[in-house]
Amino acid sequence: MLDTTRVQKELVECNRDTAISGVSIDLHDGANLTHLCGSISGPLGTPYEGGTFIIDIQLPSDYPFEPPKMQFITRVWHPNISSQNGAICLDILKDQWSPALTLKTALLSLQALLSAPAPDDPQDAVVAQQYLRDYQKFVGTARHWTDTFAKIATVGIDEKVSKLVEMGFPEELARSVLEAVKGDENAALEKLCSG
């Protein structure tokens, strides 16, 4: 059985300072605590800057004695993350996991991994080779992937903004609220209505 007490506590703990840490966890579907959805913001000063990366989190029934299963949903160009399926090569998600670690620390580790790739122990050999042989090209590709895949929320945001403007909200406010809720139209509408 999954230790729901601990998971619930972790969720609260993690989402308490999302603005500072840049990581957050949400429930993937309804009340199912074993399937979560994490998101990390791309670290500043890296090709991933400005992107928001969504991570699928599956909690084994033995969690926290077993590591959580994490996988990038957002496509990333990174030596230690599969460009095909988003699988992550990170020791603390495998043999170096400790029950003292949490989902938040794991997500923070992923964030650190984005800013400090380890091409000597690659998950994606192609990316790792490019990283080692032609770093500039790697940076270009990674940035392109970030712009393309990690900023989905901003794509079509104008459309959503115009929709909200049609409803009678000022454009600037609608845009800022939409950005705050990561492009979720309904959440933005709710927020605007609640004042």
């Binding site: 033995d62 004695f65 170096q96 400790s98 029950p99 003292a100 670690l101």
Partner: peptide, 23 residues
């Protein structure tokens, strides 16, 4: 690093038998 007896037992019997704090 302190843990409760239950978790300690679980780590010893089902886990890798390492301290979560210092490995």
């Amino acid at each position: 690093f302190r843990i409760c007896l239950f978790c300690h037992k679980k780590i010893l019997e089902e886990g890798d038998g390492r301290c979560p704090g210092c490995r």
